[in-house]
Design a protein around this nucleic acid. Structure first.
Length: 192
DNA sequence: CGTACGATCTGCT
DNA sequence: GCAGATCGTACGA
């Protein structure tokens, strides 16, 4: 079943980031459907988190989606060439989000390969946030999309995840965030 | 208006 | 292991 606004509006974004492991993300973009298991996430927890784009209450055209009520996307361009996909959580005006860092393709594998430049499927096919968006066809035009709508959504497909399959660690690429860079807000689902 | 840089990926060494 | 790609955004002048 599709995850609901109630799910996304939970206030514990770190818990949601962990819980999203094993859920299935779907995209229906360019008249094509793809889906994939979420295997790595990171939590960004609002105005007190130095690694978060909304740190200190910063609110601009770019990060506006983070301030919406949980249940929409936050997509932005990074390093001038990569689209990064976030799931907005928590309530309106609480700018929290979960970055999807890795997925494992399920449906529409050929299309995902085409989008990724016909790379072969292996452990590094979609193990990075830029690759995730590219596989799913996510671009900046999908910023702010409602996750309860027909374009991008997440389903619980009863994939079982045990705690002992989950690795926790520090977030990647946020050295500038000082002490917040050490927080254990990154979750990885060990693949078999 | 100018400038510095980023929640990254790839290919070459 | 490392440099280059590449450009929108944030922020200061």
């Amino acid at each position: 079943m599709k995850l609901t606004h109630t799910y996304y509006q939970q206030e514990n974004t770190v818990a949601v980031a962990k819980d999203l492991l094993g859920k299935v993300i779907h995209s229906h973009i360019d008249q094509q459907h793809t889906s994939a298991i979420i295997t790595e996430t990171e939590a960004y927890v609002g105005t007190d988190d130095r690694a978060c784009h909304a740190f200190g209450g910063r609110r601009t055209a770019r990060n506006e989606a983070m301030y919406q009520a949980g249940g929409c996307t936050y997509v932005y361009l990074c390093y001038g060439m990569h689209h990064l996909l976030n799931i907005v959580t928590h309530k309106r005006d609480q700018p929290h989000a979960v970055l999807i860092r890795a997925i494992e393709p399920l449906v529409g594998v050929e299309l995902m390969q085409q989008r990724r430049g016909n790379k072969t499927i292996n452990n590094s096919f979609s193990n990075g946030p830029g690759k995730v968006s590219q596989s799913l066809g996510i671009r900046t035009e999908h910023n702010g999309v409602n996750l309860c709508g027909p374009t991008v959504w997440i389903e619980d497909q009863d994939i079982q995840v045990n705690d002992n399959q989950i690795q926790t660690g520090a977030r990647v690429g946020v050295e500038y965030a000082k002490e917040d860079a050490q927080l254990p807000y990154r979750f990885i689902l060990n693949s078999n």
